[in-house]
Amino acid sequence: MSTNTPSTSDQPAVGTARVKRGMAEQLKGGVIMDVVTPEQAKIAEDAGAVAVMALERVPADIRKDGGVARMSDPDMIEGIINAVSIPVMAKSRIGHFVEAQVLQALGVDYIDESEVLTPADEVNHSDKWAFTTPFVCGATNLGEALRRIAEGAAMIRSKGEAGTGNVVEAVRHLRQIKGEIAKLRGYDNNELYAAAKELRAPYELVAEVAELGKLPVVLFSAGGVATPADAALMRQLGAEGVFVGSGIFKSGDPAKRAAAIVKATTFYDDPKIIADASRNLGEAMVGINCDTLPETERYANRGW
């Protein structure tokens, strides 16, 4: 975090980088759950979710149904906002800044400019500085994360492969980001300019990451977490929290599984607690082998 001098202004400032990034700081150590109805949102809140992601179909169903996936119906998002007291996030298509404007007008607490929906622009992401509502964006590597931050993202999630119930891509992307950060730490100042060029990211952000040893915003993991042990794995690999999409409400006993994933996320380094949380959860979502997924069905390839 940057350290500004205290202001003595009498005017409250809304939508500042600190207020946007600070919101994500409050979610750390927590689980953000995909929900498609107010009832599911309540189950998530009861289970201890720190926030819910309101969407029309979970990624597993988007995969199954095909077609164009868009922002959810405002009535449905409002229904979820009214059902729970925890923060509500919602997804816009990549580059669809009007969907984002609508979500801001609805009063959602965070906008996910998400590769899970069908991209609206194959060149440009939305200018996220233009909004009061903060944005979270996906990334598969450090350069992608820093380009999103340069565009105004206040939180990053490693993409993984949503709707598969398979954690392998989540692990790949988080390891990639953490590994590239660790590499930057070892560079001297002369090398950071070339690193910025290679990462295709602004030099200032690259230098900041090299100094901090972490992203300047909160980093969560997403895309494939289906079990308490999956969540704990992502935490041990360095994620500050997890998004769980299809993994909860596509399983046999969503309430129980949701509570178990919350426990394992907090006590991610305590195998005994993870073991207890993993008992008798009923069936996990079936899952998909990612190496049999055709390139065109890989959501992680969307965005650049």
């Binding site: 409250p12 809304v14 600190r18 959602v108």
Partner: peptide, 20 residues
């Protein structure tokens, strides 16, 4: 909600000396 979140100087009793 988050859209109303803000930052602002606060006069804090006992810490006035160095400003808000």
């Amino acid at each position: 909600r988050q859209n109303e979140s803000f930052e602002q100087g606060v006069a804090f009793k006992g810490l006035e000396e160095d400003g808000d």
